[in-house]
Amino acid sequence: MSKTYYDPTDLRKFGKISDWNEELGSKFFDYYNTVFQEGALSEREKSLIALAVAHTIQCPYCIDAYTGDGLQRGITKEEMMEALHVAGAIRGGASLVHGVQMMNKVNKLEG
């Protein structure tokens, strides 16, 4: 039994999830691969979105994957860090915007 929950080498085994449910696994990967193809957004833009989301949901596999993917696409570390600050701003903002609820509650309770 592994002593840690995450093993970096598990990332390359991602495709194996189809072994236990071929139909749903295939549908997922078809969908996944289609999502990242160039559309209204470029593959490069999608890679940066994925990197920011990966940090927001704190998925170590996704962080490894989309850091590597970004480097492959020539995305610079400055661009990557800016994308992360967008994630950080939204995440921080999501906490702070609830401050309005707190303020409403205080105002209501105190009259």
Binding site: E38, S42, E43, R44, G68, D69, L71, Q72, R73, G74
Partner: peptide, 13 residues
Amino acid sequence: PSGAFLPANQAAM
């Protein structure tokens, strides 16, 4: 590539 990673799509680059 400038490190231990593979190149991306040639046309996009």
